[in-house]
C-alpha cells in the first residue's frame, strides 16, 4: 500500500495536525509520501521531510495553491493521488474544503473525520455530533480520508530524512480567486493543538470579561476557547468556538468557565485528559463530565485562580 498525506500548513509553518495525520497513515501501514502544496513552501517541505515515518515529500510550489483554493488543490491532489491506495489529510477547514472534490474527481467515496484505523479499509468515525460512533468499511480502490487530529498521537517532528521532489504540475481551474482574509493574531498556542485550553461560555456575560481568561491562559501557556453560546452572543470571534461545529480539542487540561455543557460543546472537548468546570449552577451538565468541579461565581473564582496559579507556577 502507498499512502499520500496532504500537509496542512499556512505557507509559513507546517501545522502539527500533519504529524497526527502521518500517525493515522502509519496505523494503516505502507509507504507514506507527503504532498506540500502552497506558495514558497521550501521550508515547510524540509520540515515535512524530517517527520518520523515519511518516505518522500512531493512539493507543488505555485501561486495557484497559495490560498489553498479548493478548485485548484482538488485537481492537483486528484492528479497526484490517483496512483496511491489512500489519500489522507487533516479534517481542518482546508481539508474539509478540498478533499471531497478529490473524491468526486476520482469517483470514490470519502470517509470523513476518522478517529481510529481498524484496518486498511475500515475506519471509526463519530456521527450524530459524537452521540454515536460508526465503524465504516470503504470498498473503493482509493480511500479518500479526512482525519480528526485529536484521534491520533502525532509522530515525532524530527528524526526522519525523506527525499524531497519538486512537482511541476500546475492546476489552475480558473473558477475562483482569493479576495482577502481576517486572521486573528495571537501569541497564544493554537487552540486545536494546545496542551491546556481555557474556555468561556455565556456566563462570561461579554467579550471584555474574556480578558480574565486570557490572563489565566497566559500564566499557564494555554489557548483560549469559547462555547457556541458565547460566539453566537458576539462575545468572541467564531474561530474560538470549541464544539461539534467548531474546533475539536483534546488537551491535557480543559477548563470550562461559565459553560453549561450543551451536547454540542461536549462533543468538541470530552476527549480532554482532565476537565475542570467552574459554574455557579451546580446542576449544569458540564459537571457530569468534569474531573474537578467548582460551584462558584466565576467573577470571584477566576481572579482567585489567577492568584493561586501565580503562587505555584
Amino acid at each position: 500500500m502507498s499512502i499520500l498525506v496532504i500537509a496542512e500548513h499556512d505557507n509559513s509553518s507546517l501545522k502539527q495536525a500533519t504529524l497526527n495525520v502521518v500517525a493515522a497513515a502509519k496505523a494503516i501501514g505502507g509507504d507514506i509520501d507527503v504532498l506540500v502544496a502552497g506558495e514558497n513552501v521550501g521550508a515547510i517541505a524540509e520540515a515535512a521531510a524530517k517527520a518520523e515515518g515519511v518516505n518522500k515529500v512531493l512539493v507543488a510550489d505555485n501561486a495557484a495553491y497559495g490560498h489553498f483554493l479548493a478548485e485548484n488543490l482538488g485537481e492537483l491532489v486528484a492528479e497526484v493521488g490517483k496512483n496511491y491506495s489512500h489519500i489522507l489529510t487533516s479534517a481542518g477547514t482546508t481539508g474539509k474544503d478540498f478533499m471531497p472534490r478529490v473524491a468526486a474527481l476520482l469517483d470514490v467515496a470519502q470517509v470523513s473525520d476518522i478517529i481510529r484505523v481498524e484496518s486498511a479499509d475500515t475506519f471509526v468515525r463519530p456521527i450524530y455530533a459524537g452521540n454515536a460512533i460508526a465503524t465504516v468499511k470503504a470498498s473503493d480502490s482509493i480511500k479518500v480520508i479526512t482525519v480528526r487530529p485529536t484521534g491520533f498521537d502525532p509522530v515525532a517532528a524530527e528524526g526522519g530524512s525523506a527525499s524531497v521532489e519538486q512537482l511541476d504540475v500546475v492546476k489552475d481551474a480558473g473558477l475562483s480567486s482569493f479576495v482577502g482574509e481576517e486572521k486573528a493574531k495571537s501569541d497564544r498556542p493554537d487552540l486545536a493543538s494546545a496542551g491546556i485550553v481555557i474556555s468561556g461560555g455565556r456566563g462570561m456575560q461579554n467579550g471584555d470579561n474574556f480578558k480574565m481568561l486570557e490572563q489565566v491562559a497566559d500564566l499557564m501557556g494555554a489557548a483560549v476557547g469559547a462555547s457556541r453560546a458565547a460566539v453566537d452572543a458576539g462575545f468572541v470571534p467564531n474561530d474560538m468556538q470549541v464544539g461539534q461545529t467548531g474546533k475539536i480539542v483534546a488537551p491535557q487540561l480543559y477548563v470550562a468557565v461559565g459553560i453549561s455543557g450543551a451536547i454540542q460543546h461536549l462533543a468538541g472537548m470530552s476527549d480532554s485528559k482532565v476537565i475542570v468546570a467552574i459554574n455557579k449552577d451546580e446542576e449544569a451538565p458540564i459537571f457530569q463530565v468534569a474531573d474537578y468541579g467548582l460551584v462558584a461565581d466565576l467573577f470571584e473564582a477566576v481572579p482567585q485562580l489567577e492568584e493561586e496559579l501565580k503562587k505555584v507556577l
Binding site: V136, G293, Q304
Partner: peptide, 21 residues
C-alpha cells in the same frame, strides 16, 4: 461505504467537587 456497527460513545464519569480555588 458500509457501516459495520454503530456504538454509543464511551461515557465519561463525573469526578469530584472541590470546595474552593
Amino acid at each position: 461505504l458500509s457501516t459495520l456497527k454503530v456504538e454509543a460513545p464511551a461515557s465519561r464519569q463525573a469526578g469530584i467537587k472541590v470546595a474552593d480555588v
